[in-house]
């Protein structure tokens, strides 16, 4: 990773650390947020389907990494 991008990430992490010690109005806004169920979550009906999905996801990730490394 380029130093300039890593520096940006470091700065974000510093802001997070500062936020942890502040009582910020934005935090109280966040606590009201609701969660919408997305299409993927809706379509996984049981643990077996979840395990199958993660197995296929892992294979897809491994293949995508291989493709990225070989510029496919």
């Amino acid at each position: 990773m380029k130093d300039s991008i890593q520096n940006k990430i470091n700065k974000i992490q510093e802001i997070a650390l500062a936020s942890a010690s502040e009582k910020n109005i934005k935090v109280s806004r966040d606590s009201k947020e609701s969660t919408n169920i997305d299409n993927l979550t809706k379509s996984i009906r049981n643990k077996k389907e979840a395990e199958l999905f993660f197995s296929e996801l892992k294979s897809a990730i491994d293949l995508a990494k291989k493709n990225a490394a070989t510029n496919v």
Binding site: R29, D30, K32, E33, S34, T35, N36, I37, D38, L40, T41, I44, N46, K47, E49, A50, F53, F54
Partner: peptide, 26 residues
Amino acid sequence: KFTNIAESLLPNVYNLAFGPFDSNGK
């Protein structure tokens, strides 16, 4: 915001949402 659906069967999948705040702060 990155959110994991409560009691989801996909505990390692977080949904990305972004946008301005509405009148309720969501």
